[in-house]
Amino acid sequence: MNLDPTNLDRLRQRIQALRAKTVANGCTEGEALAAAAKVAELLDRYDLSLADVDVRQSSCEQLAYEVQRNKRILLDECVGAIAEFCGCRVWREKDRAGVRWVFFGLRADIEAACCLTEVIDSA
């Protein structure tokens, strides 16, 4: 079932509210189980997963990896593949201090890309 962005946002908020109904948050065990069952029903009805709900609320960020050299190095040939592997975008920025690679995407993806870039650059 296709949802427009407004209805999808309402559904996401409803699912998040239901997911917050836990014993740790003051609900009885029965209330928490009923909320979990409703979440499962909504996800099934709209053919979504929890990842879909969580990712849709995440915003994209950028994270830069600084290279302290002005000339091109072998790392330059790898960065595009690293970004593709990690599911993000990348671009090169250059100034007097050196080169920086800017990764853009979801937080976990850009952190993985920067970490992998650092490992390759160190090697």
Rank of each mutant, 00 (worst) to 15 (best):
M1P: 11
N2A: 06
N2Q: 14
N2I: 14
L3R: 12
D4M: 07
D4E: 05
D4Q: 07
P5Q: 08
T6K: 15
T6P: 03
N7L: 11
N7D: 08
N7G: 05
N7F: 15
L8W: 06
L8D: 15
D9W: 13
R10C: 02
R10S: 04
L11H: 04
R12D: 02
R12K: 05
I15H: 12
A17W: 08
R19A: 06
A20E: 11
T22H: 11
V23T: 08
A24K: 08
A24S: 09
A24L: 02
N25A: 15
C27P: 01
T28A: 08
E29G: 14
E29I: 11
E29P: 04
E31L: 01
A32M: 04
L33A: 13
L33P: 02
A34N: 07
A35S: 15
A35G: 00
A36W: 00
A36I: 00
L43I: 02
L43Y: 15
D44A: 13
R45Q: 11
Y46H: 09
Y46T: 01
Y46G: 12
D47W: 07
D47Q: 14
D47M: 05
L50H: 01
L50W: 01
A51L: 12
A51C: 00
A51M: 01
D52N: 06
D52F: 10
V53C: 10
V55M: 05
Q57G: 10
Q57S: 11
S58L: 09
E61F: 04
E61S: 05
E61Y: 07
Q62Y: 15
L63S: 08
A64F: 03
A64N: 04
Y65I: 01
Y65P: 01
E66G: 00
V67P: 00
V67F: 00
V67R: 12
N70H: 11
K71Q: 03
L74K: 07
L74G: 07
L74F: 15
C78P: 00
V79I: 15
I82S: 04
I82Q: 04
I82G: 03
E84A: 11
E84Q: 07
F85C: 02
C86H: 05
C86P: 08
R89I: 03
R89L: 13
R92H: 01
E93F: 08
E93C: 03
E93P: 10
K94A: 07
D95Y: 11
D95I: 09
A97Y: 12
A97D: 10
G98I: 00
G98V: 01
R100M: 07
W101F: 15
V102L: 05
F104M: 10
F104D: 09
G105Q: 13
L106G: 12
L106V: 04
L106N: 10
A108S: 11
A108F: 01
D109F: 00
I110H: 06
I110E: 07
E111V: 12
E111G: 13
A112N: 05
A112P: 01
C114T: 12
C114V: 13
C115A: 12
T117F: 02
V119M: 12
V119Y: 14
I120V: 11
I120C: 02
D121A: 13
A123T: 06
A123C: 03
A123K: 02
